[in-house]
């Protein structure tokens, strides 16, 4: 296992958000984590990259922390740095010289289709373009494991479709292992080898796992015509509905925007 989470418990104050979460991701796998809003999906990613300490349990990594790339929900680019310098930032942190970092940054900007936009500030880019810069920033560090937190939540359907398609291409090219948090069921089933359902919080834990036995790379439009896509989506839909409907007594809801799922 490249990433092996055992009995993980995460708390805010005294209140456990996640409890007894077990989740393994093998090298080369694409795993999606879905669950009701505020159940702690993002918290789990924070534990993996070390932004937040677990209150119990283990996060075992078969790689160095620096080999993990994290793509945030919002692009979180430095507004005072150009696209090129934002991409170069991670490389600079890892010891590249300024010129070296900038050259590599420009190469990555070109490969995400933003070769002419190196000198633009984030404010001067569209939402989709900023996402691409953020992707270039992460990929430029050549991670082995890519964690994504609802990477395309804020984008409109068409931009989202093409960006997802491109991203899948880069995942294959770079031979990346992926753990993606999303609440878009169809997206999860369409792109993943496995979908893991996290239950309602507090004390959320894994409620089910679905293998999606379709070969990758997949055609994002075609895959939706597959029988297995329909069956798995339906099963996940039912499971997730049950979680959402289960009443919970939550003292401190995590603010998170909820999107309507078809």
């Amino acid at each position: 296992m490249m990433l092996d989470i055992r009995n993980l418990q995460m708390s805010y104050g005294d209140e456990p958000v996640l409890e007894n979460v077990d989740l393994g991701v093998a090298a080369g796998e694409f795993v999606s984590l879905i669950g009701p809003s505020g159940c702690g999906k993002s918290t789990l990613l924070r534990a993996v990259v070390g932004l937040q300490k677990p209150s119990a349990g283990d996060v075992r990594l078969d790689l160095k922390r620096r080999e993990i790339g994290l793509l945030f929900q919002d692009d979180a680019l430095l507004p005072w740095r150009t696209a090129r310098d934002n991409v170069a930032l991670g490389l600079r942190i890892r010891g590249a010289t300024k010129a070296e970092a900038r050259r590599t940054a420009m190469r990555w900007l070109e490969s995400v289709g933003l070769g002419q936009f190196g000198d633009r500030y984030p404010r001067e880019l569209s939402g989709g373009q900023r996402k691409r810069v953020a992707i270039a920033q992460v990929l430029a560090l050549r991670p082995k494991l890519l964690l994504m937190d609802e990477p395309f939540a804020s984008l409109d359907a068409i931009v989202r479709h093409y960006l997802t398609e491109d991203l899948l291409g880069w995942v294959d090219e770079e031979d990346l292992t992926v753990l993606m948090v999303t609440h878009d069921l169809e997206e999860a089933v369409a792109v993943s080898d496995r979908v893991v359902l996290l239950g309602n919080g507090p004390r959320a834990h894994v409620k089910g796992r679905w293998e999606i036995d379709l070969p990758r790379p997949r055609d994002l439009l075609r895959v939706k015509e597959e029988h297995q896509f329909a069956v798995t989506t339906r099963a996940l839909w039912n499971a997730l509905s049950e979680e959402v409907r289960t009443p919970t007594t939550r003292k401190r809801p995590e603010p998170e925007t909820e999107e309507a799922t078809p």
Binding site: L51, F72, A76, L77, L78, L89, G90, I93, R94, L141
Partner: peptide, 26 residues
């Protein structure tokens, strides 16, 4: 200061000095 920027720089591997220069001072 935008905590998202702080976390972004941290996950890229930046320490206190980088945070100061890239996030706090600007």
């Amino acid at each position: 200061v935008d905590t998202r920027l702080v976390e972004r720089v941290k996950t890229l591997g930046g320490g206190s000095w980088t945070l100061l220069r890239e996030v706090y001072v600007p």
